[in-house]
Amino acid sequence: MTDPVIFTRAGFFQGARESVPLLIGTMPFGLVTGITAHGAGLSILEAVLMSAVVYAGSAQLLALAAWTHPAPIVAATFAAFVVNLRLALMGPVLAPWLDRLRGWRVWLSLFVMADQTWAQSVRTMNAGGNDAAVLLGGGTAMIVVWTIMTAIGHVVGSYIQPPPGHPLFFAALAIFVCMLVNMWRGPRDILPWLIAAVVAIIVSRLLPGGSWHIVSGALCGSLVGGLLEHYRKTPA
């Protein structure tokens, strides 16, 4: 990337436009989150507020599954931290963009960063894109749709409660499968991906119910890949 990083209105709308398929895939997930919030006894105002400020589906579902009255403040906070630890690995990947932005542009872009829109931005950045507003645009579209779907889900929840294993919910996982295709860079990915898969499966058995398997799988696979690549290029 040789061009200077820019942050334009056009980039913002490009990000929003490109996120449309991701939004459609995420809709059932938002719906389920609203239905679950209703089932946990949250008011529609509380459900909408949670989606707008926490904005992290798997953390919300995990916390809501164990919701009590009065609310489990410490447990819910801890659950959110553990499930979202993976997000801490994602920001630094976009450093080539974020390093060149200032103030609210950095911290607001990170606030609306979701797995799917982040992946989209990484792809744009690696393809030579230099408009960092793509991240904010995709994320903003995502948080708006996410919050609206939660509200709809809360209303729907008064009438129906689809079972947890309903195939509609597969849409959320399908997005992640597609992201894998987008992230594939060739044979040098084979070993790191294999290591990530094996470590993630093992850790998901040992420490279920968080994102430890995601964090440890990603770190182990990336360390091996990075070390191999680094020392192949610069022999000691």
Binding site: L89, A95, M183, A196, A197, H213, G221
Partner: peptide, 17 residues
Amino acid sequence: AVLAFIPGTLFVSYVVP
């Protein structure tokens, strides 16, 4: 170099389990 591998391995670790 390590960071460049994060996107792929992160989604692998999400999807496979």
